[in-house]
């Protein structure tokens, strides 16, 4: 059992209290507050991070269960000086308003584009086989685990569509 979690390329020791969620570990112990707590019960997606390449709700994970895992948070995806393509697209398309769900949206979208590239179907896919056609409906379904109360969905879709197109080119 490793005694650390790697967060954005830096190793951090596990918390003493096994009750600490991965989310609280990131926010309180590592000091990375970009990952947000919106509901703490896996019902909003604001706490989405990427663990070993897969997006999860960090609120429904105990930090002690992630020893040795590699976690990418919004801070690891890009910085104000070097934002990722999705981060830039969110700014350009106004894919946010209050900004609180935004890191979760971007982490989810980052992983989602990989999932599509790997041919993973969704509830919106017409068939379960073959290459996924990136449609608006596919993006909407795949992003439905990330609530946005400001109602920026249409702009978030536009931002993701832009980046998905660029990737496809």
């Amino acid at each position: 059992m490793a005694d650390y979690i790697t967060v954005n390329d830096t190793k951090h020791p596990l918390p003493d209290d096994p009750r600490v969620s991965l989310l609280d570990f990131l926010r309180q112990e590592v000091g990375l507050t970009g990952t947000k707590k919106g509901c703490d019960h896996g019902q909003c997606g604001a706490c989405t991070v990427i663990v070993n390449g897969m997006r999860i709700n960090s609120c429904l994970a105990l930090a002690v269960m992630h020893d040795g895992d590699t976690v990418t948070t919004i801070e690891g995806i890009g910085t104000p000086g070097a934002p990722s393509a999705l981060q830039k697209a969110f700014v350009e398309h106004d894919g946010y308003q209050c900004g609180y769900c935004t890191p979760g949206q971007i982490c989810a979208a980052t992983a989602m584009l990989d999932e599509i590239a790997h041919g993973m179907p969704s509830d919106a896919s017409d068939t379960l086989e073959g290459e996924i056609q990136i449609s608006d409906e596919e993006i909407r379904e795949r992003m439905s685990g990330n609530l946005c109360r400001c109602g920026a969905y249409a702009n978030i879709l536009a931002a993701i569509r832009d980046v998905a197109k660029e990737k496809a080119v």
Partner: peptide, 23 residues
Amino acid sequence: IRADYPVLARAILAGATQQLRNK
């Protein structure tokens, strides 16, 4: 499962979200 048990794949995909299904 996709090929032979699509009802199962579809049921799973209809539940929760990708984040939750990953866990």
